[in-house]
Design a protein around this nucleic acid. Sequence first.
DNA 1: CATGATAGCGCG
DNA 2: AAAGCGCGCTATCATG
Length: 580
Amino acid sequence: MRTPVSDGARHGWVALGTSGERVHAVVLDAAGVTLERVELSAADFPGWAIERESTSAPRWVWNDTPRWYPRLLRAGLQVSRCHDLRLSHLVLAASDLVVDAAALRAASRWHAPPYEAVVPRQPALFDWDSDTARDELPADVDETVAEFARQQAAITQSTDPNRLRLLTAAESAGALVASELHVAGLPWSREAHEQILHDSLGTRDTTTGIPTQIFQLRQQIGELLGDSSVSLDSQPKLIRALHRAGVLVESTSRWELAEQQHPVIAPLLEYKKLTRLLSANGWAWLDEWVHDERFRPVYVPSGVVTGRWASSGGGALQIPRQLRSAVHADPGWKLVVADVAQLEPRVLAAMAADTNLADAAFGRDLYAGIVNSGTIASRSEAKIAMLGAMYGATSGESGRLVPRLRRSYPRAMALVDSAAQTGENGGTVRTWLGRTCPPPSVDWQLAQAQASDSTASEAEVARARRLARDRGRFTRNYIVQGTAAEWALAWLGDLRSRLARLPPAPATERATASGTVFGRQAHLAFFLHDEVIVHAHESQAAAAAEAVRAAAEAAGRLLFGEFRVDFPLDVSIADSAAKE
DNA sequence: CATGATAGCGCG
DNA sequence: AAAGCGCGCTATCATG
């Protein structure tokens, strides 16, 4: 295992490409001048890369991290830095900060969907259409070098090269982390999971497969509704059965059912809860997604329009709290579970340089700070108000409370209000580092144009107004959610290099079996917007926890410099990831 | 039989 | 009471 060299002077770049079975590398100096061209067989490539990393720690330039990095990891190489051309292209071609994006946009083959969408897990299910084939990502090394040059030029000539350099580096570091998370996997106890399933669902009937608890609830609900054959899984049928029993609901959603007074409600809500567990994370999920005590979801960096990650397969970003105790460290290892308290409002305070809000948050619970300042009476109201301000609430308790925040924190509120106004007017907004939201759709623009015509009907005007407001709420939230995603990338990127610098754990049986770079090393095991889980040998858990905190501080400084805002973490070191 | 839309619920 | 952002996934049901 090679430990990444810590960042210091610039180490130059190595651009990679393929041609058939051959790998081509072009070594560039820091100014982008070609120093050397190397051609390798696919088999020789990992060894060559390991050598290169240890001698010069270059920034690896490649078309798409998931097409290159997993095999290097399996060969034992954790690289220190890369430039992901696909992700960077998507950011730069759309960014307001780029002065002339024509050349980038003309290179349309670089505008490509995530690898998972192109190479699906079950290829048979995918229907290749001509567009996808035509837009396949370039792999040739000269095309790689050319795109890299275009991107460097776009950054250098932009109105804010520093931000775009940070953003593309953060995106690229995130791409490395995403591959590492997949290869390492989330430690998952099959036994603990099965215990949870058994405790809540009971045992599966040997012939029907229906768990006893669900079977019994179904019987009980049938009796209470006076219809033993009622279908509980079909909303229309369930609604009709409820109506016959005098429960006058318009939907079968949980909140509406919960309002009703009827003996069938409690068992019905329980039934819905249990069937949800069964279908989303039951025995079938366990068999499909957990192997060798690891859950290995596919993370999709930048899969969300705001820059947040998405995931593909297994519902990685929706693991229910109920199952978190199944996330369990290996014997002799620990989980360091850390999440940021109120990331988004802190990010908003820093973006707006709103010292009142940053001070209210400093060193404590942000909502308690708002209460403390006398702005709002209770913590729960403060939270509702702040979420309403960032999401664009107009009615209800939230809408009522937002004006109070506007009085106490005018700078922060003006920033989100202005983003909303820009969006309503059809404009674009951008995050702190320059990720720019998409322009309004053709349909949206058409609706606005029609509504401004003197012959427009009332319905057309109302629809255009509603669409404009919808877009305003989107852009309002975009700047905050997107900048929070950037903070999280900076946190992850800094953390991965800190963890890589920790000395390896003592040799264990598992280390020899796992066959990857992470067998003996503290490593990231999970990431979810504002939370990380690190898997570390017990001898290193405390150092890993300290690295998590230090990385959060570094991320705050990297984005917001000396502005006085902090990002406090809740950190725990435990065998499982269970909360509370 | 396959595809797409919708409801509902899980996560931040 | 159920609004106000961003997602993925499952089941059902209408449509091709």
